[in-house]
Design a protein around this nucleic acid. Structure first.
Lengths: 341, 341
DNA sequence: CGTTAGCACTCGTTAGCAGTGAGTGCTAAC
DNA sequence: GTTAGCACTCACTGCTAACGAGTGCTAACG
C-alpha cells in the first residue's frame, strides 16, 4: 500500500514529532542521516501521504503532524520496540521480587512505578473477582444488631459487608448459619452467590435456624452490590507536563474523565486481552480524543485478571511504552500466579 | 485593632474578590448598597489596610486583593456563615439516610458529593484503625504454602494479609492456631498486636503446635505494616476551573502534591479536631501556598475518627464551605456512630 | 478634622502593523 | 524520477499608540 520510501518518511515524521511535539518540515527530514533525498522530493511524498490521510497540516505554512491513521500505521507496521532499558528493568524486577502481603498495596505501587517511569498517567485495574469462587464464609458479630460478613475467594481476595441482625436473634445460632452457608456455597462463583443463596440455601437455613429471614434479606442485599474491582490511578499530573495540554481547558476534560471511575472502568473492561493501543479518535470517549490509551491485560493460564493502562497524548513514545507494558504485565501475572497457587 | 469602617471595607473587598477573582477597586465598593462613602475615602482606608498587611496590590494601578492575613481576619472575625441551602442539605441528608454496607463506599461517595457541591477538591481520610482493638482473628488456607489472615476490629473494620505457611505444616492444626490467637489477642489494640504476639503468644503457641515458627514470623511481618488509613480524593479537576490556576505550571505543583498520598496524609493527621482553616502560606507545604485547606475531623464521643477536607484557592467561599463541612462531618459522625454501636 | 471632588499619573491590556522565517506548492530544468 | 528555484502563506515577534481602570495626592468643603 505504501512504498518503501513513504514508509520511511512517515516513520521519520512520527519519530521526530514524538520527540519534539512540533510539526515536522521537509528540510529537517532531508537532513537526517540515511535519507538521500532533497526537501522537494520529501515534500512531494508528504503531499501524497497527506492525501492518503496519514498526515495533517496544522496550517498552510507549517510542517506535517501524524494523523490518527498515521499513528495507527506507525504502531502496526513501523514502530521499533525498544528494549526496556537496564535501569527500568531493574526497578521493575526488584519491585516484583519484594515480598508483599497486601494485594492492594502491590497494585497501587505498580501503578506508581509505571507512571514514574513513563511520565504518563497510569491506570491499573485490580484483579477481577467476578468469577472467583467462594472459599470461606464467616460472620463476626459486632453488637446485637449487626455483624460483619466476610467472604474469602479461592484467589485469596477478601470482601466484607456489614449486615443487620434482628434484635431477637440468638447469637449462638450464628455458627449454625455460617456452617450451613459454607457447606452450601463453597465453590460457588461470586456472581452466582446471591441467586444460589435464595434458591438453595434459604429453605435449608429456615429449617435449622429461627428468625433467619432478616439475615437472609440483609445478606442478599450485601451480595448484590457487584464486587466492583478497584481502579488505581497514578501520575494524573503528568498530563500537565505535555506541551499539547498546556491549555487548561483541554486538560480539564481529560481530568474529568479520569475522575469518573465508572466511565473509566467501562473503557477498561471488555477489552480484548494482550496489548491494546487506542489512538486518538479510536477511543470511544470524546474526552480523550487527543490521547492514546495503551492497555495490557495481565492474565494467568489464559484467564484475564485485570488490566494495566497508560494514558498520554497521541504523541506517545509507543516504542518504549509498549515494551514496558509488556514486561510489566507479564511480571505482574507471574507474581499473582505465585500468589494464587 | 481595626475600626468598624475598616472591617466593613475589608469584608467588602474579600466578599467581592471571592466572587469575581479580580482585584477590587475603591469605586466598586463605594457604589455598594449600604456604604455611605466616596471612593476617595475608601482609597484612604485601603491604603491604611495595605500598610497594616491585610491587603495587597498586584501592581500600582490595580485594585486590592486580600493577603493571607486579610483572609485570616475575615475568617476569624467577619465571615457570615451561610445556612447550607435547602437543596444541598437534602442531598447530604438523603445520602446519609441510605443504607450502605461498605465503609469504603460510603467515604468514597461522601468525597464525591462534597466536591460536586462545592466545585473544590475534596480529600477524605477514612477512619483511623490504629487504636481499634481486635475482635476476631481468622485464618483461611489458600493452598499448601499460603493462607489469608483476617483481622476484624471492634469497629467492624476488616484487614487481610496473605501469609506463608511451611510446606510440612499440618493444615488441621490451623484451627488450633486460630483459637489460641483469638483467646490471647482478643481486645488488644491493633498497634500492640505485633509486640503482644511475640511476647505472649509465641511461647504458648509453640507448646501446642509444631513448626509454628515460620507462621509466627510471617504473621509478625504481616502485622507490622501499619494499618495506613486510606485517602479518598475527588474533584481534583475542579482545580483547573479556578481562574487563578489557569496557568498549567501552578496547577501542576498542586496536582503533584495531591498525587503524593503520604505527604497528604501527613498534612491531615495530627490536625487539631474541629474545623480547621489553613490559608495560603499558613499551610506547611510550599506546593499549596496559593491554596486554602479547610478540614473537619469527624469524631464520636470526642474520639477523632477521620478527617474531611476541602482544597481550593485562597479565594474560597469560606462562608459556604465551612458550614457545609460542619454539617457533613457531624452527619458522618452520626452515621459511623450507628455503624459502630 | 474628617470627607470628598478633581486631577495627574501608573501600568496592564488591546489593537494594529511591519518584518521575519519556516515551510509549502508548483514549475521547469536536470 | 529528482531537484533547484521561486512565489506564496502564515504564525510569531516586536513595536507603538490608544485605552481605561485604578491609584495617590492636593485642595476645597461642611
Amino acid at each position: 500500500m505504501l512504498t518503501e520510501r513513504q514508509r520511511m518518511i512517515l516513520n521519520a515524521i512520527v519519530d521526530d514529532y514524538i520527540r519534539s511535539a512540533e510539526p515536522v518540515g521537509s528540510r529537517s527530514i532531508s537532513k537526517r542521516g540515511g535519507v538521500g533525498f532533497s526537501p522537494a522530493t520529501i515534500r512531494n511524498e508528504m503531499a501524497d501521504l497527506e492525501e492518503l490521510g496519514f498526515l495533517e497540516q496544522p496550517h498552510t505554512s507549517a510542517g506535517r503532524i501524524p494523523s490518527t491513521k498515521g499513528y495507527r500505521y506507525y504502531v502496526d507496521h513501523l514502530v521499533k520496540l525498544e528494549e526496556v532499558n537496564e535501569g527500568d528493568l531493574l526497578r521493575v524486577r526488584s519491585f516484583f521480587a519484594k515480598k508483599m502481603n497486601q494485594m492492594e498495596q502491590i497494585i497501587q505501587h505498580a501503578a506508581m512505578i509505571l507512571s514514574n517511569m513513563t511520565n504518563y498517567t497510569s491506570i491499573v485495574l485490580g484483579p477481577e473477582t467476578f468469577d472467583n469462587s467462594l472459599r470461606a464464609f464467616q460472620l463476626v458479630p459486632l453488637n446485637d444488631s449487626s455483624a460483619v460478613a466476610i467472604i474469602v475467594t479461592n484467589t485469596g481476595h477478601v470482601e466484607n459487608r456489614t449486615i443487620s441482625i434482628p434484635p431477637d436473634f440468638d447469637m449462638s445460632e450464628l455458627e449454625k448459619v455460617v456452617n450451613i452457608l459454607n457447606t452450601k456455597l463453597a465453590g460457588v462463583p461470586l456472581h452466582r452467590l446471591q441467586s444460589k443463596l435464595f434458591s438453595e440455601v434459604g429453605e435449608e437455613l429456615g429449617r435449622y435456624v429461627d428468625h433467619c429471614e432478616m439475615i437472609m434479606d440483609s445478606l442478599g442485599k450485601a451480595l448484590s452490590s457487584e464486587s466492583e474491582h478497584r481502579v488505581f490511578l497514578s501520575g494524573a499530573s503528568n498530563m500537565l507536563t505535555q506541551p499539547e495540554f498546556k491549555d487548561v481547558d483541554k486538560v480539564k476534560t481529560i481530568m474529568d474523565w479520569l475522575d469518573e471511575t465508572p466511565v473509566l472502568m467501562k473503557a477498561f473492561t471488555s477489552l480484548p486481552s494482550g496489548i491494546q493501543v487506542r489512538i486518538g479518535s479510536e477511543n470511544d470517549h470524546d474526552a480523550i480524543h487527543t490521547c492514546s490509551l495503551i492497555t495490557a491485560s495481565y492474565s494467568i493460564d489464559g484467564k484475564s485478571l485485570g488490566t494495566i493502562g497508560l494514558l498520554g497524548p497521541t504523541r506517545m513514545d509507543y516504542g518504549k511504552v509498549i515494551s514496558l507494558l509488556d514486561v510489566l504485565s507479564k511480571d505482574m501475572a507471574v507474581l499473582l500466579g505465585r500468589w494464587y497457587k
